[in-house]
Design a protein around this nucleic acid. Structure first.
Lengths: 138, 138
DNA sequence: AATAAGCCTATATAATTTGTAGGTTTTATA
DNA sequence: TATAAAACCTACAAATTATATAGGCTTATT
């Protein structure tokens, strides 16, 4: 399951995507809309900004806005940013690889081989679907 | 990512699958093979037994053994048993459904609709792959 | 009877997630 | 130029979940 952080990130991105024409939008507006703690959401938006998805404006009249096209924001990128690995095991993670302690030789591990396939097929889905797909459903 | 519990479950099932001809196998043997705490593994095997994957024999000469054909043990069933939902959000979970508090109307939620699709495609993979596939890789 | 094994429940420990606090910096505007 | 509004930043607190341990109970073999 996705963490709340990631779920909230998707909500925020969706909201900002829907209101792209309105310029900078307050954290407050988004947090009220979805009933998310203002401060918690603040941290999330900051991460999304640092990752290059959002821009922001400080001071009075400030807020956040989308700086990428929705179809360039794949679900996989948002999930990796906030939740970490998509793979089911550390030993098959592309971005967060760690060997399994219990595994002497990956090349002989049937679990490893299956999980590589599961990862590849899962990634196909999560890389193909983007914020654009979410926006189309609203 | 899978919890260690689920990963260990897969290791144990794999080991029991490989040694199906040997009858009951000690927890000890499996826990040593993979460096898993005996007591932790005990809990896991018990769950797998209650779920109908394993049989057991008590007393001296006892142990655990597989009672299902490996191709009948889909990855999805093991994951659901030990880790819970496969879906990325509670509101799209088939087996552990819960509505999202922030969501007034699912039918208008773009995130919901996309996650339904992701779930369906993920399930296709995890229901198709089974212990048999793991065993073939060993 | 003694021993070896799984069964069962509760609890302890560790890690992670979720949320909060409080001050700093920047910007608009009165 | 003072004030207020907003994002920025870091650290910490609380809650939840995952991992692991303990210890007695039951069953089967010898």
């Amino acid at each position: 399951m996705l963490s709340k952080k990631t779920k909230y990130a998707f909500h925020a991105l969706t909201y900002l995507g829907k209101h792209r024409d309105r310029g900078a939008i307050l954290i407050q507006e988004i947090s009220e809309k979805y009933g998310i703690s203002h401060k918690f959401l603040e941290n999330i938006l900051l991460e999304l900004k640092k990752a290059g998805f959002l821009g922001s404006k400080k001071g009075k009249g400030g807020g956040y806005y989308l700086i990428k096209a929705p179809n360039e924001i794949a679900l996989s990128r948002v999930i990796r940013l906030l939740d970490g690995p998509i793979a089911l095991l550390p030993c098959v993670s592309l971005n967060y690889y760690e060997p399994c302690e219990e595994c002497q030789n990956q090349e002989q591990c049937g679990l490893y081989k299956v999980m590589i396939k599961v990862r590849d097929e899962t990634l196909k889905i999560l890389e193909m679907k983007s914020l654009e797909d979410i926006l189309e459903g609203e």
